[in-house]
């Protein structure tokens, strides 16, 4: 019933409409970023992509954004994965509380968090120095809801208790259980969480801008007035990069789960 001919036609038309709505802006960004302006008028050029690396300020902002993404992912994994495994194994009673706390940042607008956190950050700057990397501490909180969901569903798919008990009875310590037994089984969930975290960090503007740190979105917005094409090239490049990462992950996932289920394609 679902795939009758009429339905197929309607589906095709609707999907095409959605495709136009979502891809037209992306195509226009791509088009704008390779179209030469000023002295390069009328040419197709990758000059503005090269400019992303050549421009001193922009390069340092991109590097600090990438570092920030790595730091956020590492902090998130180190904090969240052992906590969630521990809660699942030893204190299942607080799992509701942990879920609530992890989903809380979703309901509070970033602007409100920033106003509240700015006082804390004067203290953080005093202790850790004034580099953009300290933003990772705030970003970990922002990515919590997404990471929690992703890791939680991965944990739900495996039998953590049996795995942990088997490992413990063979003499493994808790650290071994977490890093060498459970982690390899939920690696796809952790990767999903990591990529969403990277997307969030590379796109986040409010925090960085209001706390006066130069990350990539802030730098792109700053140069937008004078070098529009370069700014748009940067934004487009980051969207494409993360989309490809996520797409690759969806294939990786598929192989992983068919292996686990013991069914070949």
């Amino acid at each position: 019933m679902n795939t009758g001919r009429g339905f197929r036609i309607v589906r095709g038309v609707l999907l095409a409409l959605f495709g136009v709505y979502f891809f037209l802006p992306l195509v226009s960004m791509a088009n704008y970023s390779v179209r030469g302006k000023g002295p390069l008028e009328g040419e197709i050029t990758f000059h503005y992509y090269a400019e992303l690396v050549r421009n001193e300020d922009l390069r340092s902002a991109i590097i600090s954004s990438l570092l920030l993404a790595v730091l956020t992912v590492v902090l998130m994994v180190v904090l969240l994965v052992p906590t969630m495994i521990w809660v699942r194994l030893r204190v299942p009673g607080v799992s509701r509380l942990v879920e609530f706390l992890c989903l809380l940042p979703l309901t509070v607008p970033p602007l409100v968090i920033v106003v509240g956190i700015s006082n804390v950050y004067t203290r953080v700057n005093y202790l850790l120095g004034d580099s953009p990397h300290v933003l990772a501490l705030a970003y970990v909180i922002l990515v919590l809801p997404y990471s929690y969901r992703s890791i939680d569903s991965a944990l739900r798919a495996i039998d953590v208790t049996t795995l942990a008990e088997a490992a413990r009875s063979l003499g493994a310590g808790w650290l071994t259980v977490i890093t060498r037994v459970v982690m390899p089984n939920i690696v796809s969930g952790v990767l999903g969480a990591a990529f969403i975290a990277i997307a969030l960090v590379l796109g986040e503007y409010v925090f960085a801008s209001l706390l006066h740190y130069d990350t990539m979105p802030v730098a792109l917005a700053a140069i937008y007035k004078s070098e529009t094409s370069t700014a748009i090239a940067g934004a487009f490049a980051s969207i494409v990069l993360i989309s490809l990462l996520l797409l690759a992950l969806s294939y990786f996932n598929r192989h992983k789960s068919t292996d686990l289920a013991g069914v070949s394609e």
């Binding site: 969901r149 992703s150 969806s250």
Partner: peptide, 9 residues
Amino acid sequence: CCSPTCVRG
């Protein structure tokens, strides 16, 4: 939320 991972899960 998020990613094909969650969908799978």
